[in-house]
């Protein structure tokens, strides 16, 4: 018991040692949970969209026609989507 009290007292520096570990736990734990939940949320939305738009084939087609699609911002993406919608236009090289 005495040892336990001494442990929590940290030689009189309890007010500095424990908050240090606390800050690290809260910040790192909080970020971890935030990233984890964001990942689950986005992957769930993606799965729902894929199901609604006719399964995987459609997604793969969308990805391939814009092989650089992942990093592409709205404007370029819109071009590609438009090109897909009207196959005659040839699409971006």
């Amino acid at each position: 018991m005495e040892q336990l009290i001494a442990f929590f007292d940290m030689g009189g520096y309890a007010g500095f040692v424990w908050p240090s570990y606390g800050v690290a736990a809260v910040v790192m734990g909080g970020l971890f949970v935030a990233v984890w939940r964001g990942l689950r949320h986005d992957e769930r939305v993606l799965a729902r969209l894929q199901a609604a738009t006719g399964g995987r084939r459609r997604v793969r087609a969308a990805e391939e026609s814009g092989s650089r699609g992942i990093d592409t911002g709205g404007a370029r993406m819109a071009d590609q989507a438009a090109a897909r919608a009207t196959p005659d236009s040839g699409g971006p090289a």
Binding site: G69, M77, A81
Partner: peptide, 16 residues
Amino acid sequence: IAAAKVRTLRLAEVQG
């Protein structure tokens, strides 16, 4: 990556 795919799909939806 998932978010980017969602963006692509949404755009395709709007456009198509």
